[in-house]
Simulated scan of single mutants.
Amino acid sequence: MVKAVIFDMDGILIDSLPIHMKIWGIIEKELGFKIRPEEGVKFNGMSLREMITYLKKNHDIPATSDEIYEMKMRLQKEMFWDEVTLFKGVEDLLKELNTSGIRCAVATSSERYFMDMVVDKFDIRGYFSGFVSCDDVKKAKPEPEIFLLAAKRSGTKPKECVVIEDAPNGITAAKKAGMKSIAVMTTHTEDALHDADLIVNSIDEISLSLLKNI
């Protein structure tokens, strides 16, 4: 029986990919390097620190890891508040789950600052009983730590949770955590998300009845 739903943030709650791409484009231009398309796919589910470690190892970048991190954080703070949007259907689903007594949690590879900014900007904090960011775990997705902690903070067992994700790393992490998963095709194709228990086109296709039958 489903007692909790764990939501990824980027690509599930918010349409943030265009903003992230714009920010990385600014950083690439300023520092003189180019992220290849296949590298961008690898970044899904990684923390920012992990992305930067990868970039420093595979590109000749004339800046320290800390300098790149501070640049990305500064640009996010400047751009996210005005440009990020909530996906259609998110708030309706949260209301339905809360009314039915299903607990909700957020488990994101983003920093706590941005997780807090998002839930406060859209006034959705009250729907959630647990929050986990990359700042709370030692190992990011595809390791299961982030989802196991989200289950603990929402007061449920892993087998009672369903994860809603948009990235292969997140689906793998859910499987390792012993949780069912629903993949939403906001950032990846159906083929890339084939390990999910269910695949949908958008989050507004997800309902309580669908979750109960997964």
Score class of each variant (00 low, 15 high):
D120T: 15
I68F: 02
S65G: 14
N58P: 14
K138D: 12
Y54E: 03
R125F: 03
E50H: 11
T172W: 07
S129I: 01
C104K: 04
D92T: 14
K139P: 15
P18I: 04
L210V: 14
I214A: 09
K159Q: 12
R49N: 10
K176V: 14
M115G: 05
D66K: 07
K121N: 15
K139T: 14
G25P: 15
A63V: 12
M1S: 12
G178M: 08
S47V: 01
F128H: 01
E111A: 06
F43E: 00
L13S: 03
I146D: 02
R49V: 14
V184Q: 09
K139C: 06
I6E: 00
K139N: 14
P142Q: 09
T99E: 11
E83M: 08
K72Q: 01
E28D: 08
L48Q: 14
S181H: 04
P158L: 02
G130D: 03
A177V: 15
A192N: 12
E30W: 04
E39M: 14
F7E: 00
A174Y: 13
P37H: 14
A173T: 02
V5W: 09
F7I: 01
H20W: 13
G170Q: 13
M21K: 13
R153L: 05
K139S: 05
T53I: 11
I146H: 01
D82E: 12
S47F: 04
K157P: 01
S133W: 02
I61Y: 03
I182V: 00
E111N: 12
W24H: 13
K212M: 10
E111L: 11
E190T: 06
Y69V: 00
I27G: 01
E78W: 03
D92L: 13
H59E: 02
